[in-house]
Amino acid sequence: MGVDSFVSWLRDAAGSLHENAAYLTELDSAIGDADHGANMDRGFQAVVGMLDETSFGGADELLKKAGMTLVSKVGGASGPLYGTFFLRFGTALAGADLTPETIGKGLHAGVEGVLARGKPELGDKTMYDAWAPALDAYDAAVAGGSDLGTALGAAAEAAAKGRDATIPLVARKGRASYLGERSAGHQDPGATSTTLILESAARTLS
């Protein structure tokens, strides 16, 4: 397990977000401003372009650079949120061996970055509603002796459940919050893209 696995993850995630760009935008047009798919696709294509040009000695440097690229290219609220996630994830991995435990610490650091940037609470109908159960599932799997791939699989499954659970919620953050009760009945686009990224991690990191 080394930097190549993380390169595969980001490439796979870019492919998945590209395939789902129209779907994400459709979700966003119901409760947001109809640009989440296009913004995520543009950002991750820029990450792929960066990967084509650069080689990295460590996963920490790779993730930090991916974070900076997303901050620069995505825009909206998703740019700072996903950018901060990867920046903090990378920073937490500096000098560490890549084990399920250290990667878990990295994921936690990334999600704490999302919390600091967006100040969401559980149930606000945001990407955090996918991240939070994913981290719990990951921690439980690692504590039970699972390997990385299995733990990430559990995290992705939990994220998908969290994503589905956003449907009845009333949004309290972001542009969707202006809809009030009218935001209920729609799946959150951010929780959806988070789930895609974690599903991609489960496919590629092991």
Partner: peptide
């Protein structure tokens, strides 16, 4: 005061 503007300017 829009979520995206505030976050990007903060960063």
């Amino acid at each position: 005061n829009y979520t995206g503007d505030v976050m990007n300017f903060e960063m």
